[in-house]
């Protein structure tokens, strides 16, 4: 458990310590966060497909 005086071992405050361990943790977190753009692309493709379907049916 993290004590009240201990720095958290993850998150921006920990990364700001600039230790190699903290920087590596920040990189790993950013890598995971970057996967959001995959979600964005897939979500946009789904919305586009659905809208095309609706318009095609309504035409």
């Amino acid at each position: 458990m993290t004590g009240p005086q201990e720095r958290p071992r993850s998150g921006p405050a920990w990364w700001a310590t600039l230790s190699d361990e903290a920087t590596a943790d920040e990189i790993a977190t950013n890598r995971r966060r970057e996967r959001f753009v995959a979600f964005a692309g897939v979500a946009a493709a789904v919305v586009t497909g659905l809208l095309l379907l609706v318009v095609a049916v309504a035409r």
Partner: peptide, 11 residues
């Protein structure tokens, strides 16, 4: 763009 989610220079 979505490909970048898995293929980027962070690795």
């Amino acid at each position: 763009v979505p490909v970048h989610g898995f293929r980027n220079h962070l690795r």
